[in-house]
Design a protein around this nucleic acid. Structure first.
Lengths: 338, 338
DNA sequence: AATCAGATTGGCAGCGCTGCCAAACCCTGT
DNA sequence: ACAGGGTTTGGCAGCGCTGCCAATCTGATT
């Protein structure tokens, strides 16, 4: 591009200062609207900025401002996946709060891999953010060490079942499992199965299952059977997995799914095979996706405060309160499938 | 946090140099694995880095390296929304390529608002990225000016119907509309309706509709009726909108949806109301979401190369080929609903 | 032992901005 | 005309790193 221009250096703050006939620090003050300056100066700077098309260099700004109060207006966010709409929702919630406070974010995706998460933590820390938002409470020893050594605020989001490093924002996944089980038991279901996706990677799903399983056992109706689909959760995986599960255990009267995607697939299986829902088989999901509410029979599921989690995470980062755990709870949506 | 430590300065490169007993530039070379150094030096540096827990400061690195070849390993990405799974998919595709080339990304979400996009362009440019990936070909005059003045590579993704600034990666949305219409006509449908979401904001959806409409008219079977749901696309919106459409025009034999989310909602409407698909009403979507393939009757739709678009966008940014348009095409998926 | 190309290394000047501080300026009131 | 307090301004030293270049070292060759 622009082969002709010999060496187009970008416009710098000192170019603006020269053009406006003022000092560099004056321009800096005007641009950040900080300190005092006269209206006349402000106008001259604004004019010069517009005329030259000046774009401030944040790298230089943050570097120079590091160590001071106003310094870092940046937060790093690490999520495990972009495939599941849940995580974009968290980002959305965070984004809104971020904008309001004038922050920017750098995002990393760990693919549910703890090693990769550790690497990402290093990468994001190298931007010298004001804080870091990570997913879940489980991290490698190396990751924990880096987080601690960073000296910045850390938010661990989504899960409150365990000890956090600093701030924790989420809900009890164990509790979700327990309440889901109680609901099914209360409705009279007794031969209950589980359809999930890879539990060794999605630790929150594993906690839900643990709570679910224990509640059933305590009630004297232990979990009858489980079917774990390989790979990430999806409607296709849920449909296939439910098919396998009922083939093996035709006597089941209810199935708990690792999330709504999987449950939706299960519902499709039932529609395709003419299995009456919930008469013959009840279905219970997790997450309360919009789509689950639009089904002919709204899915029975648990609504999680995804947007709020993102928003509160950012809010707590910006404030400087004490380390604490914020439980945002969840809500059981009694749909028509269980 | 850490009230006790008087003034914990973070470890810098020169601390590492001192600890390893070598010069700063040597440490820099070793860390970037660039230039030449002995094995012994490498080990000593690695040891010091590990011992001190050194985290490089990218801000300083990028600032110092600016203007040179290796400088900016950063790209900015602007997408209109995180609500629709399509955009996270683009990010996913981009992410993979980004990782491979050692790039990082900064992401902005415009909410389909051109003004906001312009502001985001400014914000992202202030990070001095090596390139910027934006969505679509339509931008405000101010945005175009900034992009041109930036002097960096620009990729406009998703849409190829129009002139790009530099690199364009996507497919023809007009073409999608045309081919969708042709498919419905070939299957014998004649009284065709359209269900969409806010067209004034989603310009790509508008282009698809335009192509669709023209093809129908040219064939002598003009679009019979349209129903536009307010707000963003969703299954719930699609379900409600199809309900309104068929109430108004019970004679329709096929409906084209702005995307799969809406179409899925339409399908739910048909299931709930006992409308035979495709016997009584045919449904046609767009995007080929995984979920649409898991339906009892797979949705007839158009598969778009979302992951590839993200990947190719990054690839072209990194390479320095000529300005050009890369058409990645699309594929009609003949499902069971049309 | 002297020579030379190539490998390895360190010093130091910026990159563009902000924080700090002293200087200049502007009003009052005397 | 001059002091006193606030307001506005400019100069300049870094922030932590990289690029450049000169210095040093290595081993092989003559």
């Amino acid at each position: 591009m622009n082969v002709h221009e010999p060496e187009r250096r970008l416009v710098t703050l000192s170019d603006v200062a020269r053009a406006a006939g003022v000092g560099e620090s004056t321009v800096s003050r005007v641009l950040r609207n900080q300190g005092s300056f006269s209206k006349r100066t402000q106008d001259r700077v604004a004019e010069a900025v517009a005329r030259l098309g000046y774009v401030p260099n944040r790298l230089a700004g943050m570097l120079a401002g590091s160590g001071s109060t106003a310094g870092a207006k940046l937060v790093g966010i690490i999520i495990p996946s972009l495939t599941n709409i849940v995580f974009p929702d968290l980002l959305r919630g965070a984004n809104a709060a971020l904008d309001r406070d004038g922050f920017q974010s750098v995002i990393g995706v760990s693919d549910y891999d703890p090693e990769r998460e550790e690497a990402l933590i290093g990468a994001l820390l190298s931007w010298r953010p004001a804080g870091l938002i990570v997913t879940g409470l489980e991290h490698t020893a190396g990751a924990l060490a880096r987080l601690r050594a960073s000296g910045i605020r850390i938010v661990e989001m989504i899960d409150t079942d365990g000890d956090g490093l600093d701030i924790v924002v989420g809900f009890s996944n164990r509790g979700v499992g327990c309440d889901s089980a109680r609901h099914l038991l209360a409705r009279g279901y007794r031969r209950i199965g589980y359809v999930g996706h890879d539990i060794t990677r999605d630790l929150r799903a594993a906690k839900r299952l643990a709570g679910f399983r224990e509640t059933l056992r305590a009630a004297g109706h232990p979990l009858a059977e489980t079917e774990i689909a390989p790979g990430p959760s999806s409607a296709a995986a849920g449909r296939a997995a439910l098919g396998r599960l009922v083939a093996r255990r035709p006597d089941l009267d209810a199935v708990y799914f690792s999330n709504d995607d999987m449950a939706l697939g299960g519902y499709f299986h039932c529609l395709a095979e003419g299995v009456a829902v919930p008469g013959r088989l009840a279905l219970f999901g997790f997450n309360a996706l919009d789509i689950a509410a639009a089904m002919p029979q709204p899915l029975t599921t648990i609504r999680t405060p995804r947007l709020e989690i993102g928003a509160v995470a950012v809010e707590r980062l910006a404030a400087d309160g004490p380390a604490e755990t914020v439980d945002l709870g969840y809500e059981l949506i009694a749909g028509a499938t269980a």
